[in-house]
């Protein structure tokens, strides 16, 4: 097991290095003049623009730019804001709690609602309850979060006045954003769980279990669900990514002070180093979450675990 983890961590580092290259490329290699995108050319003198170029280092050769950037990242320096020269990383850490709060509670909503409805749907396949759940799930994945968020604000803040429409302090400011993001995740999970449940229920071993005289409850929840959830564990990684990315929009809609908000504001202010820093940070978090998911996956599924054990009995 230790070896599996070691191997996974190594590849993790490689991927993170890769993502930093990618983030660098996105902003400095793609066509389009970064500096011109950042500023309003008419409001600055050519000298000021040249100064800015120099400050950003974009006047240096490409490889030098890259090496410089990479070195800084390794040192933990994710860049400075153009607007107020604030370093990015501390700013991210300052805003992290609000985002984590949101992402975790939204994941919780997604998982509980998604699992329950997904199983319900698969078990009552093609009955009215299944059809209803599937339609709800379709809505979940089809509604843009900026719209469903606004709808919730409209209903629960403007009309009913139950929850505040904005802010990031206190549990009651968390309810609506978590629901908004949670609905999206729940939609995905319902569809995933339903599909894999149905697939598992079609496997021959389910017949064996029934032939043994097991109660339907045991067949469904002890055996089928467990089999169905194993591929679902990898979905957790993807879900984590969706949740992180989703915060950008949600935090804008609900005016929450999270890292999603940092990036949204940076985009409005054309503050590219900040955008770059936040994207890289998210990528790193995402890679770590996925590595954890992979490791736990290997732990949960005996079929995968076996691959790492002795191969002696693996053939035949």
């Amino acid at each position: 097991m230790a070896k599996v983890i070691a191997v996974r961590l190594l590849s993790c580092l490689a991927v993170v290095a890769g993502s930093s290259v990618l983030v660098f490329c996105i902003l400095y290699v793609l066509p389009g003049d970064v500096v011109m995108n950042m500023i309003d050319p008419s409001s600055m003198s050519p000298e000021a623009i040249a100064n800015l170029r120099h400050e950003l280092g974009v006047d240096r050769p490409f490889y030098e730019q890259f090496l410089h950037y990479f070195r800084e990242v390794l040192r933990g320096d994710f860049g400075k804001s153009l607007v107020n020269s604030e370093p990015v990383l501390p700013k991210i850490f300052a805003h992290l709690p609000a985002t984590l709060e949101l992402a975790i509670s939204a994941s919780f909503v997604s998982l509980t609602v998604g699992l329950a409805l997904g199983v319900l749907s698969a078990v009552h396949r093609n009955k009215p309850i299944d059809i209803a759940v599937r339609i709800v799930a379709l809505f979940g994945i089809s509604m843009p979060t900026f719209w469903s968020g606004i709808l919730l604000i409209l209903i629960f803040s403007v009309f009913l006045g139950w929850f505040p429409a904005m802010g990031s302090n206190g549990w009651n400011t968390l309810v609506l954003p978590a629901l908004t993001l949670g609905m999206l995740g729940a939609g995905f999970i319902v569809r995933m769980v339903r599909n894999s449940m149905l697939e598992v229920l079609g496997e021959p071993f389910i017949t064996t279990l029934r032939a043994k005289g097991l109660a339907e409850r045991a067949v469904l929840y002890r055996h089928a669900l467990r089999n169905a959830l194993i591929p679902g564990v990898t979905m957790m990684g993807i879900l984590a990514g969706e949740m992180l990315a989703g915060t950008v929009v949600i935090e804008t809609v609900f005016s929450r002070q999270g890292i999603g908000r940092i990036i949204a504001d940076a985009i409005m202010a054309k503050d590219l180093p900040v955008v770059q820093g936040v994207v890289l940070f998210t990528a790193i978090v995402y890679v770590i979450v996925n590595a954890l998911v992979d490791i736990s996956y290997a732990y949960i599924d005996p079929r995968i675990r076996r691959l790492h054990n002795d191969r002696r009995s693996g053939w035949a």
Partner: peptide, 22 residues
């Protein structure tokens, strides 16, 4: 269900897929 597995039991064609893999 109290008859299945107790009074009458069954074995299948593909032993590889007839057991729950996990």
């Amino acid at each position: 269900r109290s008859i299945r597995g107790k009074k009458a039991a069954m074995i299948f064609q593909e032993p590889m897929t007839a057991f729950d893999p996990v």
